[in-house]
Design a protein around this nucleic acid. Structure first.
Lengths: 240, 240
DNA sequence: CCGCATTGGATCGCGCACAGACCATTAACA
DNA sequence: TGTTAATGGTCTGTGCGCGATCCAATGCGG
């Protein structure tokens, strides 16, 4: 007997895990993502626990467990009372967690998804009529990125890329870009030292943002593709 | 006092729900996805419960609850004993569940993400050196799609698009395409009747597959973009 | 200086999901 | 024709996450 089988690659995609880890771990990951991607800047305040737990779809108890862990790891700080809240601490103790090196397949997978999502986001953003507020935000992120000290580069860089995704106006796309960006940052953390191609990056960032602001989708896509190629070959060199 | 706030769009993306629904519902969704997307053809056999529950990262009890529900809804059928298993029933009782009409924002969100993912997948697939097996699979899906009766069109169409995503070799991208495709099918289900532009679609499918097999990324992207435009304007017309 | 709205902090009972073991059934194969 | 391996079917105890409710602190407005 030979029942029809589902192709292996498709099976991996469709029958992938329903839930990755428990609620606590998922929540930790999400909060760290928000902090590391610079969505909540140092000194910034997180939404109140009741609101945040509702947004994340988890109980307040579970959220508080995660926040407590983040507190102990030095990422956030809590203050009680009205006008209190949970605040992101500036430059937390950056202890590099040395995990197992990622497999070449995982690297290629992440880079492929990233390329598709981010070039697509740039193109889509350029095709939209952007409001003045969004345009200002893009320029501000670009400026932050260019003038940031090397220690903040990773964060401001993520912030800019996220801003581009936001400019598409599609929440799903923004979320997908945020996720793949987190995966990318995890890969970059496994690299010993980052070469000083920051100036080069800044110029590329400017090209991308200009193309988007000018409403030139093909140029935005091309500029983004060139920008991503740098990081991609860097990662492939170290990890693949 | 005015603590720095996180931009609303980004907050929606980052603080989106950690887990959508309970494990049972998630599992149901996943299994229905596999069936409706045609990954498991009618008559095909699902992996054994033990293996499937392990893949999905859930307990066998929970998986069985979902399978039982699918059994009662007529989607699958179980047989005990060696060489038994759970099989997809041909053409289950297609009772259309009339939910609330999707919001225009949700439609636009889905269409945007779909455009980015699927054009990106086509381009990526065309840029790869495809093995003979993959090439055969693509051609087979194209053929199925062209020769399928109207009742099977949705399924074979999904199957072809999934095959293209598979051809990228990136599991994450394949999973993302499968997800957005499910969302799209949900939207299409809300439309009263599908116009008879199937022949047109078949020609476009051929163009896409040919461009991929010829290794012409720009042509693949363009062909896919044209193909998606049809469905997009259809949905926008009905729902936006 | 007082009152109060707002926020973090803490506790208790409930229900779902899990892990593991065991039972029942079936078709290929020797 | 018996054996056997693989599969669906069932049961029980355990732990995590949830909902709800209350407590504690704190700074602004009167």
């Amino acid at each position: 007997m030979h029942p029809e089988q589902v192709p292996p690659v498709l099976a991996d995609a469709l029958f992938r895990p329903v839930r990755t880890g428990n609620a606590f771990e998922e929540t930790m990951e999400r909060m760290l993502q928000a902090i590391r991607l610079g969505a909540i800047p140092p000194g910034g305040r997180l939404p109140p626990e009741r609101e945040l737990s509702a947004r994340l779809g988890i109980s307040r108890v579970t959220l508080r467990e995660a926040l407590r862990a983040l507190q102990e790891s030095g990422h956030v700080e809590s203050r009680r009372g009205r006008y209190g809240g949970t605040f992101v601490r500036p430059v937390p103790t950056h202890r590099a967690v040395a995990g197992p090196p990622p497999s070449p397949e995982a690297v290629e997978d992440t880079l492929t998804l990233r390329f598709v999502l981010e070039t697509g986001a740039a193109e889509t953003a350029a095709a939209r009529a952007l409001g003045p507020q969004v345009r200002r935000h893009l320029r501000a992120c670009l400026q932050d990125c260019a003038s940031a000290p090397p220690t903040d580069y990773r964060r401001t860089d993520s912030r800019l890329h996220l801003a581009i995704a936001e400019a598409t106006g599609a929440p799903s796309l923004t979320g997908a870009v945020a996720d793949v960006r987190s995966r990318l940052n995890a890969l970059l953390a496994a690299i010993p030292r980052i070469p000083a191609n920051i100036e080069h990056s800044d110029a590329q960032h400017r090209d991308i943002v200009n193309a988007i602001l000018d409403g030139d989708p093909p140029a935005a896509r091309t500029a983004m593709a060139e920008h991503l190629a740098g990081t991609a070959s860097l990662l492939r060199g170290f990890l693949a």
